[in-house]
Amino acid sequence: MRFSEPVRMANDGDHSPVWARTKRRRGGANPIVGVLVTLLAVFGVLTAVLGIKERSLAEGGAIMDGWIAAGVATVKGEAPRVADEAVDTAGDAADKAGNAVQAGAAAATEELKK
């Protein structure tokens, strides 16, 4: 009596049955590609939804253009203020670091004099 290939492989101690084998995952793709594909999918769905809502892809695109323009204007308007705050914070940190170095140097000088 002849047995089929899966049965022979199941009886063989060195091999596992074909149906019990796990498929190896292919090496992971670059995560940046996954993020880009996801963003493009979200953009496509948003375009389709706005196109259906406005009954025109051009009108839906115009709405999205308005959102993007408002976001860019907000960033441009906030950027100088945020940069000024960052410069002020960095200046304060530099002053504190300089004062700490001077205090440490003075303490070290006093210790060496003793």
Rank of each mutant, 00 (worst) to 15 (best):
H15D: 01
S56C: 02
G91K: 15
T38N: 15
E85T: 08
D14Y: 02
V87R: 12
W19M: 00
G13S: 13
G60E: 02
A41Q: 13
E85M: 10
N30K: 02
V75T: 12
G61R: 00
A108P: 02
W19D: 03
A105K: 05
S16H: 05
T22I: 07
A58T: 14
A105I: 06
I68M: 10
A86R: 15
R8D: 04
P6Y: 01
L39Y: 15
R26F: 09
Q102S: 09
L39G: 15
Q102G: 03
R21H: 04
K113G: 04
I68K: 06
F3G: 02
V45Q: 04
I32T: 10
G13W: 08
M64K: 13
N99P: 00
V75G: 08
V75E: 10
A93W: 03
R25Y: 08
G61W: 00
L40N: 15
D95E: 15
K113E: 10
A41H: 10
A48N: 04
E59V: 09
V37S: 11
A83T: 13
T74H: 08
T22S: 11
I52Q: 09
K53G: 05
A69H: 12
P6A: 01
G91E: 15
A97T: 07
A83F: 11
A97C: 05
L46F: 08
D14E: 08
V37E: 09
P80Y: 03
L46M: 06
F3T: 05
H15K: 05
T22L: 11
H15Y: 09
E85I: 06
Q102H: 07
G61H: 01
A20D: 07
E85D: 13
A70G: 06
L112A: 15
E59P: 00
A97I: 01
V87C: 02
N99K: 12
D12W: 00
G60C: 04
D92Y: 04
R26K: 12
E5K: 14
G71Q: 06
V18G: 04
M64P: 01
W67K: 09
A58Y: 08
R55N: 13
R25W: 08
V37G: 03
M64A: 05
A20Q: 07
L57M: 09
P17Y: 02
T74C: 06
W19G: 00
A48Y: 13
A20N: 08
F43E: 14
D65Q: 12
G71V: 05
Q102L: 05
W19Q: 04
G28E: 04
I32R: 10
